[in-house]
């Protein structure tokens, strides 16, 4: 059965997006991508630190991967817009994950600045995937501004605490006519499966894989969990019943009809 995830100009088979931060060694990344079968990976842009220049991330990524540079470090819309344009000029393609954070305590995203950045970048031809705090009104405004998908957080970034915002994400899945991708917070494959099973279009996982004892094996587990979740979603879960036989029937009076 054909079941593709369509975002912007791309049709994807994998519903697992992978972040490339926090890996002990970049050489692990190609193996992680291979074992997880992920097709979309995020990268970040940084000013070169002249003391300790890092290796070029791009050399570890094959040509057929969809790159999704993030705008991490941006504190407002105009910084995010500038970072997105630099990334595109640098050959990262036209996808961008907008991430605007001016809360250094919890690292929660700024939905208002994010909406402003989407408006500009979508008009400029970008495929815009905003990272956001799950809020229906904000998500609607992001969709209107031209977002290609909505990426609500499951829990604060990097916490591995799972789908803490489940109820809010469920509302976005029901109400927003765009792919909902759970970004941040997912700590275990079972949580990734849960998100996909409830109708999320994809999940973005970074910390949980990068900080596992065996990142390559964990990436494979995530890939399989996401597949299982998707199959369960498509299969339609069976009925669970809350009342076996009601003690006080509500429709008994109809027998008089």
């Amino acid at each position: 059965m054909e079941d593709k995830l369509k975002i912007g100009d791309k049709e994807l088979d994998s519903r697992l997006f992978i972040g490339t931060g926090k890996f002990a060694d970049y050489s692990l990344i190609p193996k992680v991508i291979e074992s997880s079968k992920a097709q979309v990976v995020t990268v970040a842009l940084r000013r070169v630190d002249f003391g300790t220049p890092e290796e070029n991330m791009l050399t570890f990524l094959s040509q057929n991967i969809v790159l999704m540079p993030n705008t991490s470090g941006a504190r407002n819309a105009s910084e995010a817009i500038r970072i997105a344009r630099i990334a595109r000029a640098a050959g990262c393609g036209n996808w961008v994950k907008i991430e605007i954070i001016n809360d250094q305590k919890y690292l929660l995203p700024n939905n208002f600045e994010t909406i402003k950045a989407i408006e500009v970048l979508a008009k400029d031809g970008f495929i815009v995937l905003p990272y956001m705090s799950p809020d229906l009104t904000a998500a609607k405004m992001m969709a209107e501004a031209g977002a290609a998908a909505i990426m609500p957080l499951g829990a604060p970034i990097g916490t591995n605490r799972g789908l803490k915002t489940r109820e809010l994400i469920q509302i976005l899945i029901s109400e927003i006519n765009l792919p909902i991708i759970v970004d941040a917070g997912i700590g275990r494959p079972s949580e990734a499966a849960e998100a996909i099973e409830m109708g999320a279009a994809a999940v973005l996982v970074n910390t949980a894989i990068a900080t596992a004892d065996d990142p390559v094996l964990m990436a494979e587990a995530f890939g399989q969990a996401v597949d299982a979740g998707r199959k369960a979603y498509l299969a339609g879960p069976g009925a669970t019943h809350q009342f076996a036989e009601a003690s006080s029937p509500l429709t008994g009076f109809l027998r008089n009809e």
């Binding site: 490339t20 995020t42 940084r46 000013r47 890092e54 344009r85």
Partner: peptide, 30 residues
């Protein structure tokens, strides 16, 4: 100064006083 300079123009782009130069690289990120 807010404009990306393609590598082929690095040798013919000269700096002026008070220019704002950003040297950026792509790294791992989530």
């Amino acid at each position: 100064n807010g404009n990306i300079i393609a590598p082929e123009h690095w040798s013919d782009t000269f700096l002026h006083k008070d220019d704002d130069l950003e040297i950026i690289q792509i790294i791992g990120g989530g």
